[in-house]
């Protein structure tokens, strides 16, 4: 049985080499993720902001958590995804890997910035300071600069192969920062509190508080899926604009051929 699983995985691996196959298979995923994100984020926001009870110490300001935690989690996951794509891109020279890195950057930058901003707004009333140079905040700031650096690098290099390799290398090397962010609060004395919400342990709060957080986290992940996949599909179309399958795709939708030829 394991043989057939390996065989189908191998097949999937080879198919991933084809941007066309990826474009076609993800057609419905984009909409699925989008609908789920809209529902989850709406429910999570209303639940978390209006119905979850306030905290005994922090009162209502703890509700910033419902934006801060998902933004931080998803921005780190996206970076990890970029690191994996970088590895695949460097070793197997898969075109889709560079497409994935390019498509992840804008959302990664936005969510990291959102996590830092919401953390700052949260820090003011609770810690008594907008910004403190502790392990968690600094390593997250490093992640923001890595994202921005890779973005700038890709903009700066005109030659496509070189651009892909450079971005992949920096993405991969920067992955070292992810465990630093995660374990900073355990390795060192930091002002930032340890995680309240992990995959492996019981949340450090009652269900009426963590359930809306779970909904928000899932909502952010669905939104990320929607956003990154849409960007990947767009990037594939842009890169494959001169191929026959894209021409046929647009001909079938009776779009004037001039649009595809322009690029």
């Amino acid at each position: 049985m394991s043989g057939s699983v390996t065989a189908s995985l191998k097949q999937l691996w080879h198919k991933l080499g084809s941007p066309r196959w990826f474009y076609q298979i993800t057609r419905n995923w984009v909409r699925g993720f989008g609908v789920m994100a809209a529902v989850l984020l709406l429910v999570g926001c209303i639940w978390g902001l209006a119905f979850a009870p306030p905290d005994y110490q922090q009162g209502n300001s703890f509700r910033i958590m419902y934006v801060h935690v998902p933004a931080a989690m998803v921005s780190q996951s996206l970076y990890l995804g970029m690191g994996v794509a970088g590895f695949i891109g460097l070793v197997w020279r898969m075109k889709l890997a560079d497409v994935a890195i390019a498509a992840t950057l804008p959302l990664g930058i936005s969510l990291t910035a959102l996590a830092l901003f919401s953390g700052s707004v949260w820090g003011r009333p609770t810690w008594g300071s907008w910004w403190e140079w502790d392990g968690r905040t600094v390593s997250t700031l490093v992640m923001l600069f890595l994202y921005l650096g890779i973005y700038a690098l890709r903009e700066a290099i005109a030659e496509a192969d070189l651009r892909a390799r450079a971005a992949a290398l920096v993405s991969l090397v920067g992955t070292v920062n992810i465990p630093v962010i995660k374990y900073s609060v355990e390795w060192w004395n930091t002002l930032h509190q340890p995680a309240s919400f992990t995959l492996t342990e019981k949340p450090a709060m009652p269900a009426e508080m963590w359930l809306p957080l779970l909904v928000m986290v899932l909502g952010f992940y669905c939104f990320a899926g929607h956003n990154v996949l849409s960007r990947m599909r767009l990037e594939i179309l842009r890169r494959e604009a001169n191929t026959r399958w894209v021409a046929e795709l647009f001909a079938a939708k009776s779009v004037p051929a001039s649009i595809t030829k322009e690029s």
Binding site: P53, P54, D55, Y56, Q57, Q58, F62, M65, T126, W127, G128, S129, E132, L191, Q193, P194, A195, S196, A204, M205, P206, E208, M209
Partner: peptide, 26 residues
């Protein structure tokens, strides 16, 4: 010259604070 508050990772609704035994635990 500066005082900062460090809070832990536990969150709790205020009602639970009134219950004997619940609050000191955290």
């Amino acid at each position: 010259v500066e005082v900062l508050a460090k809070h832990d990772e536990n969150y709790m609704p205020p009602e639970l604070m009134d219950m004997p035994g619940a609050a000191p635990a955290t």
